[in-house]
Amino acid sequence: MLEITRQNLRKVISNVLESMFFIFIEPVSAGECARDLTGVNFHQVQIILTGPRQKLDLDFFFAASLAEQMAANFLGVEICDINNLQVLDVLKEMVNMVAGGLVNLCDPDGSIVLGIPNITETLSTAERITINDGLDCYSSDDGYLLVRCLGN
C-alpha cells in the first residue's frame, strides 16, 4: 500500500513542479544522491495526512538552491529579489499542492484529512538527513529534492 502511495507521490510531485514551478526532476538512487550531498543545505517541510485507520507523514527536503529557484519561478521574479520568508511560503504551498494532489489520487472518496504544511527546519545540512531506500531522491538543474513517506 505504501509503495503505491509512493508511486502516486512521484507522479504528483513531477506534475506540480513542472506545471507551477517550471522545474523538471529526475529520480536518482539514494546511493547516488548520498555521494553528492556533502555540505548541501536543505529546507525541511512536513505535512501529515490523517486517515480513519492510519497516518501518513510526508517530509520534503529541498536543497536551498532549488528552493530559491522554485520561489523565483513561482513568483515570476529574479532570485536576487527573493527573501527567505517568500522561499518558505512557496515551499509550504508546493507541499500543500502535492499533498492535495496525492489525496485526490489515493482517496477520491474523501476520508483522509489533509494537514497544514509545517516548516520543521529552515536550513539543515544533508548530514542530518538519513539517506536510505525509504527516501525518494530527485535531481534537478537547481539541486536535489528528497522526500520521505512514512505510514503508521
Binding site: G100, V103, P108, D109, L114
Partner: peptide
Amino acid sequence: VTTEAREQL
C-alpha cells in the same frame, strides 16, 4: 481555490 479536487468536497 484549493488543492483538493475530491468529488465529495
